Simulated scan of single mutants.
Amino acid sequence: MMMRSGHYLNNEDDFFYDSIVKGYYNNHMKTVLTRVNSFTGIAYKDEPAIFSWELMNEPQCQSDLSGKSIKSWVSEMAAYVMSIDRNHLLEVGLEGYYGKSTPEKQVVNLSYEVGTGFIANNSMLASHMLILPPFISFPINDETTEALFGERWIKSHMEDSASVLGKLLMLTEFGKSSRSPGYQVAVSDAYFSNIYDTLYSSCASSSDGVCGAGGACFWQVMAPGMEDWGDGYEVFLEQSPSTMAVVVKQSRRLSL
């Protein structure tokens, strides 16, 4: 495959191996991190309005299911980003699957193998970094089965985040698509509530005060006028009072 620059790659997984491509990546990150905010006059690397950086959205390497290639890439790129910016949280952008380095944990996954490892890859980041494994509605047709899977998925990652990695976990990208057959707002609200309840109860019942949850962000809030950008998972809170009530309930009990 040919890149726009004229550089040739054997396949898309060369992104993680090719020295020229890694150089492109570093140049891109440096440009972003050192860009000056036109409103505040502060470089992004020093901008307090920025919460965190993500190395890549859902990296996968099908040519190396051991997870070693992604682990090496994460180690190299995280070090580069942190050499420029030590002010912000940094996360990998993983989907959260357990890899071959922790075979006893793979039962928590669905049947996917993508060449990553939740524990191995996240252990490469400094201890203060935040973990953000996405959790969007998985292709499970039965609501009860999906709820049980989701509860096990969340609790397993929370426990490992707290006891193994020593980091907070931000649960992201969960939702129900309005484009799915039989979609109902009430079902979506119940889905959100179940996830929020699992997070809250796991922390509230922790006997040693250790909780791996840092928060949760569903996919995705949009403002009026952005309808054309929707992908089926969009939520317009102004138009969804019942969903707003679910979010407000979670926010209030977390603030207590």
Rank of each mutant, 00 (worst) to 15 (best):
A79Q: 08
S161C: 08
P48L: 08
A245P: 03
A190K: 14
S205M: 14
P103R: 13
S201T: 13
F118N: 07
V187M: 11
I131C: 01
E12F: 14
N57F: 07
A78G: 10
L125A: 03
G67I: 04
C217I: 14
E146I: 01
V92K: 04
G232L: 00
T102V: 15
G230W: 02
L168K: 14
L165G: 10
D197K: 12
V36C: 05
K45S: 07
P181S: 12
T40K: 01
S251Q: 11
S5K: 07
F218G: 03
R252Y: 12
T243R: 13
K68H: 12
S240M: 05
K155S: 10
D231L: 01
G230M: 03
L94K: 05
V108K: 10
N109W: 09
V164C: 08
V164E: 13
G182I: 04
I20E: 15
I20V: 15
V107I: 15
N109K: 10
L110R: 11
L171E: 06
T102R: 15
Q106R: 15
V92N: 04
M222D: 08
A190D: 14
S66H: 10
D18E: 01
K100A: 14
K71N: 15
N87S: 09
Q60F: 12
Q184Y: 12
V32A: 02
V185F: 02
S206L: 05
Y191A: 05
L171G: 03
V235H: 06
L237E: 00
W219E: 00
E95D: 08
G182F: 04
S72W: 09
V92D: 06
S251T: 12
S63G: 11
Y191T: 02
A147H: 07
L237M: 08
H157V: 02
A223I: 07
S63Q: 12
S205A: 15
F138N: 08
F236N: 06
D85F: 06
L132K: 10
G41Y: 03
V247A: 09
F118G: 00
V164D: 11
V221M: 09
Q60R: 15
L237K: 01
G117I: 03
I70Q: 06
Q220V: 02
V92R: 05
K30E: 11
L256K: 10
F51G: 06
V210F: 04
C61G: 04
V246N: 08
V247P: 02
D85M: 05
T34L: 00
